[in-house]
């Protein structure tokens, strides 16, 4: 019965419902987007009504918010943080810098496409996106989770070698421990 198709569907539905309405957010605030997080969380835009809540450490978090450009140096920390999070985990990438490099597209130390290094579930474009856009991004993520399409963490496990090759191309001196489940 437990592995019956229909009952699995019901379990999935309940799990996805819980996951979508309880998103613990770890905001990785290096770029300019970090300043958009406080208004999103506090009284004016109140993200908590969607069940979105700040998490203090990667172990407790579900969503990794990457707010803006990533230098190669910070990419190392992002990968480390992402690998410390518990599955299922989601990534929301903020702003044009994470999509195609934005205004730093020809800089010697900022990466251009984040989804080559870690899987991204939702992109929010803008430079910077306003809190409304951030909340709409979260709602989009909730829809994806409910539909079961937010499977970046699975993609990362399946294509780990490819991601790792891309990461090691940038981070030459690789001193981090290997990802294990």
């Amino acid at each position: 019965m437990a592995y019956d198709n229909n009952s699995q569907k019901i379990v999935d539905y309940i799990q996805n419902f819980a996951r979508k309405h309880s998103l613990f957010v770890l905001a990785y605030g290096t770029g300019c987007g970090a300043i958009e997080i406080p208004p999103t969380m506090t009284s004016r835009y109140d993200a908590e009504r969607f069940g979105i809540r700040g998490a203090a450490t990667p172990r407790q978090a579900d969503v990794l918010l990457i707010t803006g450009y990533l230098a190669t140096k910070t990419l190392k920390r992002v990968i480390r943080t992402y690998e410390q999070m518990q599955d299922p985990k989601y990534v929301i990438a903020f702003g044009s810098c994470t999509i195609n490099g934005g205004m730093y597209w020809d800089s010697y130390n900022t990466i251009n496409m984040l989804d080559k290094y870690i899987p991204v579930d939702v992109y929010i474009n803008g430079c910077m996106p306003r809190p409304e856009a951030v909340i709409s991004g979260f709602v989009k993520l909730q829809d994806e989770i409910q539909a079961g399409r937010a499977d970046g963490w699975k993609k990362y496990q399946d294509n780990l070698e490819e991601y790792r090759a891309n990461q090691k191309k940038i981070i030459k001196n690789w001193t981090m421990p290997d990802f294990n489940w």
Partner: peptide, 13 residues
Amino acid sequence: EYVSETYFEREGR
């Protein structure tokens, strides 16, 4: 040159 060698470029850019 360095950027085009090292980083990826999104299509359309």
